[in-house]
Design a protein around this nucleic acid. Structure first.
Lengths: 112, 112, 112, 112
DNA sequence: TTTT
DNA sequence: TTTT
């Protein structure tokens, strides 16, 4: 799966430590919550900050590195693809969610 | 609002004609449904096609152009930003949705 | 070599048929010349068209596909990386050149 | 001039302090030299680091901010467009150069 | 000429 | 040297 038709670039900060799941096959999954914050002036000249929270998903080698090096507050640069999927919640209702499946990331600064 | 911290690039086909809303202020909104299709081979060597549907939103001048030139089936290239937002549905339940707010688009081919 | 630290996206037209070289090892190289054309209005309100010509380089499988499907005039979407390198010309002078090493491309329309 | 047809993203370090020029009209120009470093393993399994140096150009407000906040060694994320142009050198020979005209940048870390 |  |  390549990145020409569906590619996302984000620069932001992690809202929490990575959440790691290890499967039977030893394959790892890391989930990250990333905030991107942008400021602009509205019609009245007031400064508005818009913060978006993105759900990121990392697999395999990328998940292991994320587990080792990422912490809440870290600033990262990310390249990935949008994955919209549906699932059934515990009450059996169909839910829709949108995630970024990360191809690469780079930690650019740390809170400490 | 710039595109350094939150930027999406998509290449795909429109699933329907643009849906246009005109507000009191004459400002226009266009909604597009865009399919990005990618093929890859799975572990068993079978060819899998993954199609993702994306909700696109265009405002103002971009919405007018979309209304004039875009049709179901057209292939477009898009640059925009991810906007995750919540709303209350008709039953008063909080729902989450993810949209791409388009900064620029380019029609690259048409079905006819 | 990944695309997080050095990534280029272009949409444009080919100025000539691909130029193909085949090496001893059967490895192929394709060279493309791509024009990106953009219009804007200058200070005086005149419409200016700025055309940039880019040197693209494709290796291996990508070069083979380029040889098979691309022709002068075709419109393509490209993702690659900038490669600045120097070489000695036939008079022994050091020359600098900048190329785009293509990771992926997609033909979006053809002149015929 | 937009960024759909010609867009570059770089993450790297400055090789020197910004070089600033101020024109009669008070318009500012900043020139930056940016290194992007990437590592990969070659056919023999040796780790190779490839460093590319990019010439960046910033105008107006972006140039002012660059002058104020950027220093040699800083790590920045950049979005811009490729500009290939020719000029005559002091001996009257035609020379070609490739620059990145920066639309936006973000300083992500500093050496001190 | 940078940085890890 | 392309294309609209």
């Amino acid at each position: 799966m390549n990145s020409l038709k569906n590619s996302v670039r984000l620069v932001g900060n992690l809202g929490m430590d990575p959440e790691i799941k290890t499967f039977d096959t030893n394959k790892k999954l890391a989930k990250l919550s990333l905030a991107t914050s942008e400021s602009y002036k509205n019609d009245k000249g007031e400064k508005i900050t818009d913060t978006q929270w993105h759900n990121l998903v990392l697999w395999g080698a990328q998940a292991k590195i994320a587990e080792d090096v990422l912490k809440k507050g870290d600033e990262i640069v990310v390249e990935g693809r949008i994955n919209n999927r549906s699932y059934l919640d515990k009450d059996g209702n169909k839910k829709y969610t949108s995630e970024i499946v990360v191809n690469e990331f780079l930690k650019v600064s740390s809170r400490n």
